[in-house]
Write a protein that binds this DNA or RNA. Structure first.
Lengths: 249, 249
DNA sequence: GTCGGCCATTTTGCATTCATTTTTTGTCCT
DNA sequence: AGGACAAAAAATGAATGCAAAATGGCCGAC
């Protein structure tokens, strides 16, 4: 059994055994729907090495289903850009080149830039107040050098801006691209440089300021530049040697 | 007639050269890949009424295949947002509400805005010259009141800007959203108002000007406003003449 | 000793088949 | 006559089977 698969013999998810305790499903009641969600999470979490070839058979065993719904889910994941489907040669986790990452970051920047612009048109004072709260909370994390908390709050701020844009299509697209990037766990390391961190905080203050003034164009510009700088930091980090131990879970 | 099922006995043989090529060349070999391309074109072309329920069996007969590859293609189309997949109730052509259209237009505006910004970073003089050529050509169409030629050239200009952004991810996303909108055939009517047409020409001149100066932020702003105005015109057009009452049961 | 062709095994792609759910239709009761 | 219930018919969801292509190993040739 010369398994070309690295370490894919993994429990893909606890997934609450088939006890039959769950028929209350909002949207994805069907099997292929659930498989899709689980597989997507599984890939996004980075449990499969890049470019690793994962035979359908093995995935079927792991998931306890037949190949038909699995293949449907794979097609969708391929359409989402998470995996690649080579004809007659199976599915591979799409490996993102540095160029791909740059492109993804730029698209994310464009989407957030758009979100900021749209948000200025319809955001309520209450929403701004909520974002301000998050901002102060994030500032606290920054002062305490709590990188994990900082990133989580940071993400919530950006999500709040996207939500304030009141555009579900944008929200979905944003989530999709965010998922593609999330595979690359840059966030845990990208802001080691304290200087960049301080810059990011200043940029966030400018974001908040523009948001308060509902200055759409300005906010759009600031957000794009903010994400651009993030991108630069992330790419630089990726180019550097990674000496760290990844196990922070 | 309570049945929403129309006579879908239509020959699904368009497959003719489309204005824009799709992003996936990797699927063309396999059957489901070809089915995907044909079905997507078929839906984008608007051959299926909105919300119409099309039984898989019927599509299989039309396409001469079995249900397995068809279902795979349907899943992908659903992921792309072209159709809806109701659990146990089949696939329906996704009908876009006015709100959906507004959202789509805004996202397109954001993507083109981003494209303009990125294009300013890397566009060559030759590319600008080419766009200028298209611009003059479009101006000729405008002077001759040739709406069809105008729209085609206009589309080529916008595609050129997206291409100049040198971001394949962006290009793919742009093509996807463009396909969703294309179902709604607004373009044939949206510029009935000559005033709007003249405005659009002026905006295009401003676009070209900003592009020549590589003024990224400015071009970003102009493009967004340009698309915003397009959106307004399109939505207004949709509200006015109701050629078909989509009222489904 | 290494390269190249041949064959067995595995894997993918598609068709077919089975099981569930939905929809329709027919009948019966109010 | 109209509505409710039930059974038939059809459609969807998932599993299995089968053919074609690919992967890998083996043997022979150079």
């Amino acid at each position: 059994m010369k398994s070309t698969i690295p370490d894919t013999g993994v429990p893909i998810t606890p997934a609450a055994g088939n006890g039959g305790d769950r028929q209350e499903n909002r949207h994805e009641a069907s099997l292929h729907g659930e498989i899709l969600l689980r597989l997507r999470d599984y890939v996004v979490e980075g449990n499969i090495p890049e470019g690793a070839r994962v035979p359908e058979r093995q995935l079927c065993e792991m998931l306890g289903i037949s190949r038909t719904p699995l293949r449907e889910a794979l097609k969708v994941l391929a359409a989402e850009g998470l995996i690649e489907l080579l004809p007659n040669r199976g599915a591979r986790v799409r490996q993102l080149s540095q160029r791909d990452l740059e492109e993804l970051f730029d698209v994310m920047a464009g989407l957030e830039s758009l979100a900021g612009r749209l948000a200025c048109e319809a955001i309520t004072d209450a929403e701004i107040t909520a974002i301000e709260q998050l901002h102060y909370e994030m500032y606290g994390h920054y002062l305490h050098r709590d990188m994990h908390g900082y990133f989580q709050t940071n993400q919530r701020i950006h999500e709040s801006i996207v939500a304030a844009a009141r555009n579900e299509t944008l929200r979905t697209a944003y989530a999709n691209f965010a998922g593609r990037i999330r595979r690359v766990r840059y966030s845990a390391n990208f802001a080691r440089k304290r200087q960049r961190w301080a810059e990011a905080m200043r940029e966030h203050e400018a974001i908040l300021d523009a948001l308060r003034r509902r200055a759409g164009s300005e906010l759009s510009d600031i957000l794009f530049q903010h994400l651009r700088n993030k991108r630069t930091a992330a790419i630089e980090h990726l180019s550097e040697p990674q000496e760290d131990a990844p196990a922070s879970a």
